[in-house]
């Protein structure tokens, strides 16, 4: 262990601001990337599912119209 206390760890030998600025930015950027990627996949899936449902409904409606004639 290179540091004696939590404060020493946070201080990073006087460079705390720059070190934690870097790692903080990295963490936020990577987290945003993961969450955005996951939500994009979810959105794509639900969009496709919705489209399938509408298509099926249209098909059904068309069939019913044909039956009425």
């Amino acid at each position: 262990m290179q540091f004696d206390s939590i404060t020493a760890f946070l201080d990073m030998g006087g460079y705390g601001f720059f070190v934690w600025l870097s790692f903080g930015f990295g963490l936020i950027a990577l987290l945003t990337l993961v969450l955005q990627s996951k939500s994009a996949l979810k959105r794509a899936k639900s969009d496709i599912a919705k489209r399938i449902v509408t298509e099926q409904k249209q098909k059904l409606a068309a069939q019913q119209q044909n039956n009425h004639r």
Partner: peptide, 20 residues
């Protein structure tokens, strides 16, 4: 962040290396 030694010139600011 905790166990790697600090650099002889740059001290603990060198730890940014591991992300950069």
């Amino acid at each position: 962040l905790l166990f790697a030694p600090a650099d002889y010139q740059q001290g603990d600011s060198f730890r940014i290396f591991y992300l950069h």
